[in-house]
Nucleic acid binder design. Structure first.
Lengths: 248, 248
DNA sequence: CGTTGGGTTGACTTCGCTCAAGTCACGTGG
DNA sequence: CCACGTGACTTGAGCGAAGTCAACCCAACG
């Protein structure tokens, strides 16, 4: 890890863009101050692998800006993405000393890191961090289960449509735009990363992207910029229940 | 829900078989007593669906004995299992009012249920339940990610071998037998349930079971009883890293 | 202006799915 | 006891969706 990667200037938590969504969301002023003590920022460039599976981990972290991926690799090289981390998502597991997955920057990335030991102590002493982490972990588990349905039972076309709608939705939620009318967004993933997400080959991803374009479901400007004229049409292609039953 | 299904006699938590592994594992005497106040047992027969996705849920619960499954179903009937719940596993999500998945008894089943409202209050007032639930949820998330690798990248044969080794391992951990020498166990799932777990059809499951038998990896007595002479051989067939790197 | 990395497309193969028939163990009623 | 139905499972034949291998495009970059 070179020194250029370290940004030692910590921003004030009060002005943090993920303040209200990250592990620290429920913290009071006092807890926040304790977190300030043990936090530091780190930046990575797109493509960089921050953590290798099996590495000793002496910190946990939140994604501040950018996108990271969690992947598992088999000996023969087959790869499966098992997590897509967006701003406010949490990396690392309190109480575990080595990483279980590779963590890679899909885009340029800024992380807010906490030294693990003091973070664990803080967690055991004050309830708000642990409470929030539980919520976030339960959300991730739900997302993982949706993902399992996708991997186990959806066709290639449905997989692509699902991924596009997931990215569109999250993109909208970051930018607070409604998903009505024409939706446009940039793919933060290469075709190969999309394939690793979906349990496909990159050729199949490419073919199905072309097919969705040919059928007028999506428009493509360049390889990465996607235009969705009729979002409901895209949703139909996902195979999911049309009345996207959002529970709580 | 008929009256025969209710077993109103609560056992003492002290003699509970899952006392040291369930959400209540970290509880002190006082917390345990509070839990006793709000708990009740319920039994179900194999095949019964306890909860339908979308149902209002006024309780959360632990599996005491038996096995339950979580499944998702698409409109056209495609099904994917997304959770396999063993004794001590937790069902339901505090803070959510409706179920996200179908929950079905794979075998006869006894659940220790807690009324949701008081359980949530207990969670917010005392730390030990929430702490334990966080641990358990993180474990489930790890399991879900293994499962995603299986669904996305493994061959049918590897999927079957993986499932068999998972069941063998868990069976051993319940019975405290070492996984050395000849391992034998009963499949708690039908071929169709195995298929729903693995993202396959039941025909493919059946064919691959026959193939593993033909190749001497497993022995079958009847349809459900499995005999594994060489467990390492089975592990090779899973496609996983041979040095089953168990982290913590 | 050649190289490189990401992406597309085509030809062919193959693994797992579909559809269909058949086996086996078990229970039930005549 | 036997005939019958039933449900879980097995096996075969044929097919098709996605994988493999290979050629090619194109934009960026040194």
């Amino acid at each position: 890890m070179s020194h250029q990667d370290l940004q030692l200037l910590s921003h004030d938590c009060g002005s943090c863009p993920i303040r209200h969504r990250a592990v620290c969301a429920r913290c009071d002023a006092d807890e926040l101050q304790q977190l300030e003590q043990i936090k530091y920022y780190r930046s990575y460039q797109a493509g960089q692998t921050l953590i290798w599976s099996g590495d000793r981990m002496d910190f946990v972290a939140s994604v501040v800006t950018g996108i990271a991926t969690l992947t598992q690799t088999m000996e023969d090289g087959r790869r499966q993405m098992v997590g897509l981390l967006l701003p406010s998502d949490f990396v690392g597991r309190p109480g575990r000393q080595s990483a279980a997955y590779d963590v890679t920057a899909a885009t340029d990335l800024v992380m807010c890191c906490f030294r693990k030991k003091p973070f664990e102590e803080l967690m055991s002493k004050t309830p708000h961090v642990a409470q929030r982490l539980l919520e976030m972990t339960l959300d991730e588990l739900d997302a993982a289960r949706e993902w399992m349905l996708l991997l186990g039972r959806k066709t290639a076309r449905e997989k692509i449509a699902s991924l596009l709608s997931i990215i569109a939705r999250r993109d909208a939620s970051l930018k607070l735009r409604a998903t009505k009318g024409v939706v446009t967004f940039d793919l933060p993933l290469t075709r190969e990363e999309m394939a690793d997400y979906l349990g496909l080959t990159l050729e199949t991803v490419s073919r199905q992207m072309s097919a969705l374009k040919r059928d007028g479901v999506i428009g493509l400007e360049g390889k990465r910029h996607v235009k969705v004229a009729d979002f409901d049409r895209l949703l139909e292609e996902t195979g999911d229940d049309s009345d996207g039953g959002f529970l709580n």
